[in-house]
């Protein structure tokens, strides 16, 4: 009964916060509602026994992606009136996207109902037989080794590409070299002079 209660709690909260993401007036509030939605989705994953995915959802989306979202949104100077003025113009486009997403969900669910896609047709694995992480690890590093490595490589290329595209080195920038700063001794930097009265110091 508690599991059922938890399911409805998480499900309602997910939907409610997803709705609030769209309807919140303040963009920062939108992002915070999005985080609540992520969190409840992780709760739903836990209920299905996918504890690894649930934890990854929280670590990656809530812990890293949403922080950057929030970071950017907080620093934007947003004019709310201007934001809302485009609603009627963009409405057809938004509805189209919503329709496409709905169709995708319907297709996915009906395909799932129609029967297993894979020829192996294995039953769902028994809960707690093998921990999620072990099962995923075995699959990723045996059957899907090549796609897995390729995905890693693509991400690496994307990361380097992003750095190369956005990095501009300013010629006049003054850089600090920490090891040189630490290696500097007082003898190199300080000169002790005993000036004669009325003579001054020659540097």
């Amino acid at each position: 009964m508690i599991a059922l209660l938890a399911f409805y709690l998480f499900a309602t909260l997910t939907i409610a916060s997803a709705v609030l993401v769209v309807f919140a007036r303040n963009p920062v509030h939108s992002v915070l509602w999005l985080i609540v939605a992520f969190f409840n989705a992780a709760g739903l994953m836990l209920l299905t026994g996918a504890e690894f995915i649930a934890m990854l959802l929280v670590i990656v989306y809530v812990g890293a992606v949403a922080v950057l979202f929030l970071f950017v949104v907080m620093m934007l100077d947003i004019d709310f009136a201007q934001l809302r003025s485009g609603v009627t113009r963009n409405l057809p486009f938004g509805l189209l996207i919503a329709l496409v997403l709905l169709a995708e969900i319907v297709i996915a669910v009906s395909a799932y109902r129609a029967g297993p896609v894979f020829e192996r047709g294995a039953a769902a694995p028994a809960a707690n037989a093998v921990p999620n992480i072990e099962a995923l690890g075995h699959e990723l590093y045996s059957r899907y080794l090549l796609p897995f490595e390729l995905a890693g490589l693509i991400l690496l290329v994307a990361m380097i590409g992003a750095i190369v595209l956005t990095h501009r080195s300013r010629g006049d920038g003054r850089r600090q070299n920490a090891s040189r700063q630490i290696a500097r001794r007082p003898e190199d930097a300080v000169k002790i002079a005993k000036p004669q009265v009325g003579q001054g110091v020659e540097l």
């Binding site: 504890e51 934890m55 929280v58 670590i59 812990g63 890293a64 929030l70 999620n132």
Partner: peptide, 25 residues
Amino acid sequence: DINVGLLYILAASSLGVYGVIIAGW
């Protein structure tokens, strides 16, 4: 005694920053 204990700690500790960010904003 969950089998993703360490990931849980990583997940929960990454939430700690929200208190600070939200307070600041």
